[in-house]
Amino acid sequence: MRFNRMLLSTTLVVVALVVQVSVLARLHLPGAVPDLLLLTVLGLALVYGHVGGCLVGFGAGLLADLAPPADHAAGRYALVLCVIGYLAGLVKPESGQLRTATGPMAVVVGAAIGSTLLYAGVGALVGDTAARHVGLGGLLFSATLYDLLLAPFVVPAVMWLARRAENDPLAETGGASGKASDVASGWLSSGTGLRIGSQRGGFRMKASKARVARAGRIKGVKRL
């Protein structure tokens, strides 16, 4: 990943994690906690593609595993977000622009359900049965509802920032100036060529007129 991608992804992931842990987790909403980190990974994956989404998801999940108050094994959420980021990156629009909101909303619903099921499944493999006591159905419904409510405010903003970071103003300026200089040099060279050509043509015309006049004078002398 390029430096601007890494810098933006790290900043957005850290901000999302801080807001989720310090604000959203303390709202004590029924069911699941709104997953701002998941929505951030989805927005970046829809711009960077499956490889970038996989890397961002793994880094974001690992950071969430290590951030307090983590109560699960390290690497569990990293695996979940790695898979979700990879799958979300596969539906990245080829043009880079979203024409409708139906696609991203479907991605958010699938990611909310898939991440909850995958997290519960990995937990069951390591002996964590908390999902059974809380109720998997309620977790799925609340996670999907909360993520859908947050998605219109988070995913488009993250995608806009990611696309903005992809455009390097220095590169664009350099490219534009390079093209402008090429065009300018082309105009100058063509203009110079025309001037030189016109001068040469003028010299040729003058020389031919001089020859004709000289020939006329010679012929006139011979006639005389």
Score class of each variant (00 low, 15 high):
residue 170 L to T: 15
residue 81 L to W: 10
residue 200 R to K: 15
residue 107 V to Q: 04
residue 130 A to K: 04
residue 6 M to G: 12
residue 109 V to A: 06
residue 160 W to Y: 08
residue 34 P to C: 05
residue 17 L to Q: 08
residue 115 S to R: 04
residue 4 N to C: 01
residue 121 G to I: 00
residue 6 M to C: 08
residue 97 Q to C: 05
residue 79 L to P: 01
residue 165 A to W: 03
residue 184 A to P: 06
residue 59 G to V: 10
residue 202 G to H: 08
residue 164 R to I: 07
residue 151 A to Y: 00
residue 71 D to T: 10
residue 138 G to Y: 09
residue 116 T to S: 15
residue 155 V to S: 04
residue 165 A to V: 10
residue 66 L to N: 07
residue 88 A to R: 01
residue 91 V to E: 00
residue 117 L to N: 10
residue 38 L to A: 14
residue 41 V to G: 11
residue 171 A to F: 14
residue 68 P to M: 01
residue 127 G to Y: 02
residue 114 G to A: 09
residue 2 R to F: 07
residue 131 A to E: 03
residue 218 I to D: 02
residue 111 A to D: 09
residue 207 A to N: 14
residue 19 V to M: 10
residue 95 S to I: 09
residue 73 A to C: 03
residue 169 P to R: 10
residue 129 T to M: 08
residue 150 L to Y: 11
residue 16 A to Y: 02
residue 24 L to G: 10
residue 20 Q to K: 10
residue 201 G to M: 08
residue 221 V to G: 14
residue 147 D to C: 04
residue 223 R to S: 13
residue 8 L to E: 06
residue 79 L to T: 15
residue 19 V to Q: 00
residue 96 G to V: 11
residue 152 P to E: 03
residue 110 G to A: 01
residue 150 L to F: 15
residue 13 V to C: 15
residue 29 L to P: 14
residue 69 P to A: 04
residue 20 Q to P: 13
residue 163 R to C: 08
residue 120 A to W: 06
residue 101 A to N: 08
residue 151 A to Q: 01
residue 135 G to S: 11
residue 141 F to S: 09
residue 180 A to C: 01
residue 170 L to M: 12
residue 155 V to I: 13
residue 153 F to R: 00
residue 220 G to P: 03
residue 163 R to V: 09
residue 103 G to N: 08
residue 185 S to R: 08
residue 175 G to T: 12
residue 102 T to R: 00
residue 19 V to L: 14
residue 82 C to K: 03
residue 155 V to A: 06
residue 160 W to T: 09
residue 31 G to W: 01
residue 69 P to M: 01
residue 112 A to D: 01
residue 56 V to S: 09
residue 139 L to A: 04
residue 220 G to E: 15
residue 195 R to G: 07
residue 181 S to Q: 13
residue 143 A to Q: 15
residue 120 A to I: 11
residue 100 T to Q: 05
residue 165 A to Q: 05
residue 88 A to S: 14
residue 208 S to M: 13
residue 146 Y to A: 03
residue 19 V to A: 11
residue 213 A to F: 05
residue 133 H to Y: 12
residue 99 R to K: 15
residue 164 R to G: 00
residue 83 V to I: 15
residue 70 A to K: 13
